[in-house]
Computed example of a mutant assay.
Amino acid sequence: MIKELDLNLMNTLKEVYDLQRASYQIEAQLINFFEIPPLTEALEDLGACDETFLGYFEEETLAGAISYTVKEHELTICRMIVHPSHFRKGIAQKLLKKVEEQNQNISVLYVSTGKENLPAKNLYLKNGFQFVSDQEVVPGLYISHLIKEKHQPK
């Protein structure tokens, strides 16, 4: 089941925070960089972010989440979070699909991920995103930027 998450609720905020730390620890290992923002972010900062969160639940357990922002007709995926014990179950795919279903007026979607995070890059590429560029954000750390343009019916 996928539903919107309210990070104003402390127990929900804590669940997302713990899930994020577990998930991004794996990305940090993949890209060999452990100072990525989701690992250094304080609980209060997560709670104050201006992102919409959807959570994927297996029974009562939060197994995955996605967050995004919308500005006009552009959507930016900010976080894709899946608990390592739930990898390879299609959770990220379902979350991505749900975001697109709920935002059909969007004409452009953006996402960025670590250049060496091949599972994430492959997920986006197989869902119609196109590689744009790699950017060195700190010495030795590259982020891949991807875009998906949706053509609206006239």
Rank of each mutant, 00 (worst) to 15 (best):
L95V: 03
E101V: 01
A22P: 01
A63W: 13
Q29H: 08
H151E: 05
A28H: 01
T76H: 05
H73P: 03
V82A: 00
Q152F: 14
K98F: 01
Q152W: 10
D134E: 15
G128P: 00
P37S: 15
K121H: 03
F53T: 02
E58A: 12
T69H: 04
P37D: 01
L109Q: 07
E41G: 06
M80G: 06
V108S: 07
L54M: 09
E149M: 14
L96E: 00
K98L: 02
F87Y: 01
I77V: 14
V82P: 04
L5Y: 08
T76G: 03
T69S: 11
V99P: 01
G47Y: 06
G140I: 03
T52P: 04
S107R: 12
E35M: 04
E59A: 14
I77K: 04
V99N: 01
K71F: 12
C78N: 13
E60W: 08
T52I: 12
L13R: 00
K14I: 04
Q152R: 10
Q29D: 12
H83V: 11
E35F: 02
R79E: 02
I36M: 11
F57H: 13
T76P: 05
P84R: 01
A22L: 01
P38I: 04
S23D: 09
E35K: 10
S67R: 15
F34V: 10
L62T: 10
S133T: 12
V111W: 07
E51V: 07
K97G: 06
I147Y: 05
N11C: 12
K71N: 14
Q130E: 13
Q135E: 15
D45Y: 03
V108R: 09
K3D: 02
L43V: 03
S133I: 08
H86V: 10
F53V: 09
A65H: 05
R21Y: 03
C49Y: 07
H86T: 04
S107Y: 13
I81G: 07
N122L: 12
K94I: 00
I91A: 06
S85R: 07
L13G: 13
D45G: 11
E15S: 11
C49K: 05
V16Y: 02
I66H: 09
D45P: 03
A120N: 07
A65Q: 06
A63S: 10
F131R: 14
L9S: 14
P119C: 11
R88V: 06
A92W: 07
F131E: 12
G114R: 15
D6W: 10
L109Y: 15
E41W: 04
N32W: 10
K14P: 02
F34A: 15
A65K: 08
L39N: 00
H86S: 07
N122F: 01
K98P: 03
H73D: 14
H145A: 07
E51D: 15
L62N: 10
T61C: 00
V138I: 14
E27W: 11
S144E: 05
C78P: 00
K154T: 11
K97T: 13
T69Q: 11
K98M: 04
E72Q: 13
L118R: 06
A48M: 06
N11S: 15
E136S: 01
L5F: 03
T61M: 10
I66F: 02
V138K: 05
E51G: 04
Q29I: 03
D6S: 15
V108N: 02
E51A: 05
L39W: 02
Y142F: 14
T61R: 09
G114W: 12
L146N: 08
G128M: 05
F34L: 09
A92I: 02
E60V: 13
T61N: 10
